[in-house]
């Protein structure tokens, strides 16, 4: 079980929450008791319920599944609902700030519409028709890779931390960002997809701007190996000079699963 020290449950913790809106704001300090096993989102909620009912904060699942509660906690982009209070030293105030890369709406809520706009530009899968028996066959070992990418909860922490857009607002026009490189990679590696997205990943997604710093992978709460498993293989595919779309398509459709063919 949890083994928070006894004083964690009694002591009042100092929380520095950013309060304000698009016009400006500052950190405001609150004292709040912390119970054993609580996460940071619990403490923000406790302050909201008793001290400042108008605090703006997004959340849905409180279980790391919906990707709503992203913030910068002591400077580190994280999910508030998966940040245990017993990770911190009770004596030191905890700073909670909104994501830096996106415009501020209010308090801890930012305008993440950039990501929804990019999503509209990403090409859509075109899945091959079923086989002659009416079934689309895919084998587990062939989908493991893309299932990893599909674990993404769209918390946009990777988008927040990526310096290509964090430090250069202008790049947002040309750069889809790590979350969406997963989408391109997924399409490229999907056993039944018939749409070649390699040139689009470069021309529309701007994947060449990524210089593989791996910051995105470090913050991903789903531990998706964004750089190693998606971006790097995708970059390799994109620069492959010898690619011939017809041969590529042919290879995909006729490819046999590596192993475990049906016994019958």
């Amino acid at each position: 079980m949890t083994n928070a020290s006894p004083e964690t449950s009694k002591k009042s913790w100092k929380m520095r929450l950013w309060r304000g809106d698009s016009k400006g704001g500052q950190f405001q300090e609150y004292d709040s008791p912390v119970l054993e096993g609580e996460v940071l989102l619990d403490v923000v909620h406790a302050i909201q319920a008793s001290q400042a009912t108008d605090i703006a904060v997004r959340w849905n699942c409180k279980a790391g599944k919906c990707g709503s509660c992203s913030a910068e906690i002591n400077g580190k982009p994280s999910l508030m609902c998966m940040t245990r209070m017993d990770n911190f030293d009770p004596g030191v105030p905890i700073t909670v700030a909104p994501l830096k890369t996106f415009p501020i709406v209010k308090d801890l809520v930012t305008d993440v519409s950039f990501n929804y706009e990019v999503a509209k530009r990403v090409p859509h899968l075109k899945i091959a028709d079923p086989g002659p028996d009416g079934v689309r066959r895919m084998y587990q070992q062939d989908v493991n890779r893309i299932q990893e990418f599909r674990k993404c909860i769209e918390c946009f922490l990777c988008q927040d931390v990526c310096h290509v857009i964090r430090d250069h607002e202008d790049n947002k026009k040309y750069f889809a960002g790590p979350r969406f490189f997963l989408r391109y990679a997924e399409m490229s590696m999907h056993p039944l997809n018939t749409e070649d997205v390699r040139s689009k990943a470069r021309e529309e997604g701007g994947i060449s701007l990524c210089n593989i710093t791996k910051c995105c992978t470090e913050v991903c709460p789903e531990s998706i190996h964004i750089t190693d498993n998606a971006i790097i293989p995708m970059k390799e595919r994109v620069v492959d000079r010898h690619f011939d779309p017809v041969a590529w398509l042919g290879r995909k459709i006729s490819r046999k699963p590596y192993s475990q063919l049906p016994k019958s």
């Binding site: 079934v135 895919m138 587990q140 299932q147 599909r150 999907h190 699963p257």
Partner: peptide
């Protein structure tokens, strides 16, 4: 469910790929 697969859902598979 099959329609979801056509739209891109990637379900876990049986040994014979279903």
């Amino acid at each position: 469910v099959w329609e979801l697969e056509e739209w891109g859902a990637v379900f876990d598979r049986t040994g014979d790929g279903k």
